[in-house]
Amino acid sequence: MAVNLVFALTLVGSLAISLAITVPLTGALIRVRANFNPKSIQLDEEGNASAHTGPVITGFFGMLRRVKKIEGWGGLYKGIMPALIETAILTILIGIVLNSDAIRYGGREPDTGVLGSLFYATVALILGLPGVVITYRSITTPYKLAFFRPLHALRVLLTPTERRRPWTIYKTPGLLFARFLHIAYKVGILGLLKSLLLPRMLVDEEGKIVNVSPYKLAIFICISVFSTSILCPLDVISAKLAIQRNHAAPEYNSVNQEVENDDVIPEEYAEYSGSSEDVIGLRNEKDPYVGLYDCFKRVVDEEGWQALYRVWWLTAIAGLGSVLS
């Protein structure tokens, strides 16, 4: 009993420390990628040139400083409640449904080969998509959400259509497909290549890689780094699509962001902190992306191809980390 209690306290403590570090970093990453940062000069509907006046932030650390300045510590930890709920659910499922020992080893998915892992990841994607949408929106919303009023938060983050018919979230144009392409490439293609090139790679007690050809390891590392050119744009597109709310009102496009919020008018972070600007800019709510390719094309046309590679280095580091996983 004492051992179990110590283990439980250690687990809770490690999870708390992990969330305290990762939530602000994840929030900054999502904001950078979701930020609408068009080229300085654009043409309006009448063909006249107009200068962009919104925030121009494309750097990861610059976004962290901007969030702290405008929204304070509360802004840095926007999205922590969905993260807490997701972590608690996953921990319980891993500990009870799968195997209590799995928690000690990071809660990895069952080792069922490439196809099994792809199936596992696809099921996890489908089940977790609403949580991803809520997390992304709670991070990027300009409104101040109470940590312990989930129903009020959902009224702010979701449209009446999405609350009445939650499955509408799955119809967000291009979102599910973009995230599936991400896991299909990462789990399917990279997983298959790793199983062929590094079938029995091990790391000894001293942290040295053993039982592997250095040439094959170098090839797979190059492939992982090159994969950044594919995975990072999918991450950027997913972030931009996830914050688009589905609205079924006939006078608006079906994916239009909602104009009215069901008489829920929460306080904005900018008003709370005395700032006159929001952390990030968003596209005109009456002109949403209508699919994955449409999002890709508009980002390139409106913001430049560099926008698809925001914080690419973090994607590259994650790819290198997957080599040893």
Rank of each mutant, 00 (worst) to 15 (best):
M1G: 08
A2R: 13
A2T: 10
V3Q: 06
N4A: 10
V6G: 15
F7D: 05
L9V: 13
G13L: 01
L15W: 11
L15R: 11
A16F: 08
L19D: 10
A20Y: 07
V23R: 14
V23G: 12
P24C: 04
G27A: 04
A28G: 08
A28T: 01
L29A: 13
I30Q: 12
N35D: 13
N35R: 02
N35Q: 02
N37Q: 05
Q42S: 14
N48C: 06
A51K: 10
A51R: 11
H52A: 12
G54R: 13
P55W: 09
G59P: 00
V67C: 04
K68S: 06
K69V: 03
E71T: 02
G75K: 02
L76W: 02
P82M: 12
I85K: 08
A88P: 00
I89P: 00
I89V: 15
L90D: 00
L93Q: 00
I96M: 04
L98E: 05
N99M: 01
A102E: 08
G107F: 03
G113P: 04
G113Q: 08
L115H: 03
G116M: 01
G116L: 01
L118F: 00
A121F: 03
L125Q: 06
G128W: 11
L129H: 10
G131C: 10
V133M: 13
R137N: 04
R137S: 03
T140H: 05
P142N: 13
P142Y: 01
P142W: 00
L145N: 07
F147L: 15
R149P: 00
P150T: 11
A153Y: 01
A153P: 02
R155D: 00
T161K: 15
R164T: 15
W167P: 06
T168R: 15
Y170D: 08
T172Q: 13
G174D: 08
L176Q: 08
F177E: 09
F177M: 11
A178W: 02
A178L: 04
H182T: 13
G188D: 07
L190W: 03
G191I: 04
L193F: 08
L197F: 11
L197Q: 07
L198D: 07
P199E: 05
D204W: 00
E206H: 14
K208R: 13
K208S: 07
V210R: 14
N211W: 04
N211K: 08
V212T: 15
V212P: 03
V212D: 04
P214Q: 07
P214R: 07
K216L: 14
A218T: 10
I219Y: 09
S224Q: 12
V225T: 05
S229H: 04
S229G: 14
I230E: 05
I230M: 10
D235F: 04
L241H: 06
L241V: 06
A242W: 05
R245D: 06
H247C: 14
P250K: 10
V255L: 05
E258I: 09
D262T: 01
D262W: 01
D263L: 13
D263N: 12
D263K: 12
V264Q: 11
P266L: 15
S273M: 12
G274E: 07
S276R: 15
E277S: 15
D278A: 14
I280H: 05
E285Q: 03
P288L: 02
G291Q: 15
D294Q: 10
D294Y: 06
V299N: 05
V299M: 13
W305M: 10
L308N: 02
R310Q: 10
V311K: 03
W312C: 03
I317E: 09
I317C: 14
A318C: 07
L320I: 11
L320H: 01
V323H: 11
